[in-house]
Nucleic acid binder design. Structure first.
Lengths: 141, 141
DNA sequence: ATAAACTTTAGAGTATACTCTAAGTCAAGA
DNA sequence: TCTTGACTTAGAGTATACTCTAAAGTTTAT
């Protein structure tokens, strides 16, 4: 079973432009062409696109994603390298989640600050509630 | 107490170029200048930079960050809008953490897949372990 | 058969976020 | 006084990731 470029675009919520761009950069090394030159996406190519999306969403550049697929095409001899790339990526995602959680605390503080400011009216929040200044400094300094 | 642009750059691991760029875009509306035209960063300006970093790391564009600071400069009448922005941002961060967690599972599957491939040698992992194909499809489809 | 819809390529254009250069200003130390 | 180093501006250049146009060829529906 094969898919046209616009069917794949629809499936992954991308544009055909973007898929052609990825192909041009070497991110879709196994996509074939029909006798008249139209791209034919196989199930394996769909898995490729799904993996591109996963790596992209977790912060890899398209160049890094291409490097990964270049290794994949070389076959079993590159399994160690690809595994190492995924181990590195796992670490990066875990670090990013930690960073987001730290920043989430800052945003939650800001919401609490604004709620307090609304409660106390025109007054200065930090002079009314000195412990909030301490909390601010702990989060932001 | 005031800081020069290079002191602030060092403190936040940014370059002076970047800080001038942020100033030009309107992200540092309260930074003053000395009589000879040199930027002087106050404690409040440092808090601004810390907030820019927080918002940037959680996915806001510089344009969106500027909009936030433009509201902040307008004073108490914009507190509701700023609070709403932070509530929206909290939601976005939570969604992003969920997305990263989903993608982390995919990366972890890949690592397990490669480990299995190494264990079974040249053989096809999915024909040896059909449940791994089911797991792949569950994660990626 | 033919019109509409889809695809191809090369290459140009856009948006974002820097990053740097050039030319000049200013303050402090030898 | 002069040199060094940090700062200023406007504006050019870079990297990334699309996004689109133009002109041509292909496929599908009536």
């Amino acid at each position: 079973m094969f898919y046209s470029i616009s069917q794949v675009a629809k499936k992954f919520n991308l544009t055909a432009y973007t898929l052609r761009y990825y192909d041009k950069l070497g991110l879709l090394p196994t996509v074939g062409k029909s006798s008249s030159g139209l791209r034919r996406f196989s199930e394996n190519d769909l898995n490729c696109v799904a993996m591109i999306e996963c790596l992209k969403e977790t912060g890899l550049t398209l160049k890094e994603i291409r490097d990964y697929f270049v290794l994949a095409v070389k076959g079993d001899e590159t399994i160690d390298m690809r595994m190492q790339m995924m181990i590195n990526q796992k670490k990066r995602i875990e670090d990013e989640i930690k960073s987001l959680r730290r920043n989430l605390k800052k945003i939650e503080f800001k919401i609490k600050y604004y709620q307090t400011a609304k409660d106390v009216g025109e007054a200065n929040v930090y002079s009314e509630y000195p412990q909030m200044l301490a909390e601010h400094d702990k989060l932001f300094k």
